[in-house]
Nucleic acid binder design. Structure first.
Lengths: 130, 130
DNA sequence: GTAGGGCTTCCTGTCACTGGAAGGTCAAGG
DNA sequence: CCTTGACCTTCCAGTGACAGGAAGCCCTAC
């Protein structure tokens, strides 16, 4: 018995919709049964697992495409993989820095806000440029 | 002389496109000159400044709409503002936590990758489930 | 009068899906 | 044999917050 897309979805932990989408954009290419249902080979399952993990680490679909190509290429240089990873690590670090700055500013404002029934509010003052 | 949208954009630090978009979704409502050009009052400039800062702190457009309404409402309770801010702070914290987890996992994998010309790569192994 | 820059609207594209409609397929139960 | 319900299929629209670009009007300077 072939695994249907629902079975694969459960096994991999990705929604069926997402798997169809990955096929549509050419990340996987499952076979078809005579009834039109998708047929997933082991290689498809491996790719989908790979994609699920890469996406969970925050790689873009474009990065995933690159990484998947490297994954499939037995003659790859690990430096190519590492370069993609390090670029992504730098992006993550930049995002964390941004978020921490936002958090610092906003928590400072919130701390000064009494948060009661009165209209006076340092948060709004801060936002309006006060 | 009225300020045109380009002048306002420079002054506030938002692209003109963004200001038009904010008008389209009802966040601001500038007047119009006889030639069709937008005319920005002081109150429009204040609102746009407010929006720019709120967006820079990561508030969604929907939150901005709420905050702007509170900003305009002289009878607001500061607790309402603070609630929005604290919800957003919690979201920021969650995002930072997620990003830090991704960073930890990926930097660990990257550290083990030699990054040379050989095909052997712990990053790909980690992604494929190894 | 013409060249340029800015303004206007409108339409499309981005990213990575998600939701939903319309219709085909399959196994189980009556 | 028929139905029911849970699958599967495709296709279309919407999300958030804009950005890019085309076509055409306006205004100033030379």
């Amino acid at each position: 018995m072939n695994l249907t897309i629902g079975d694969v979805a459960k096994r991999i932990g990705l929604p069926a919709k997402t798997i169809r989408y990955y096929e549509e954009i050419g990340l996987v290419d499952p076979l078809r049964d005579s009834n039109g249902y998708r047929v997933f080979r082991d290689s498809d399952l491996h790719k989908l697992t790979f994609l699920g993990r890469a996406r969970a680490l925050g790689f873009t679909i474009n990065d995933c495409r690159t990484l998947l190509a490297l994954y499939e290429d037995e003659t790859r240089a690990s430096s190519d993989v590492k370069a993609v990873a390090q670029k992504h690590l730098a992006d993550i670090e930049a995002k964390i820095t941004d978020l921490q700055a936002m958090h610092a500013t906003l928590s400072h404002l919130a701390q000064e806000c009494s948060g009661d029934g009165r209209p006076d509010c340092p948060i709004l003052k801060g936002l309006s440029g006060g």
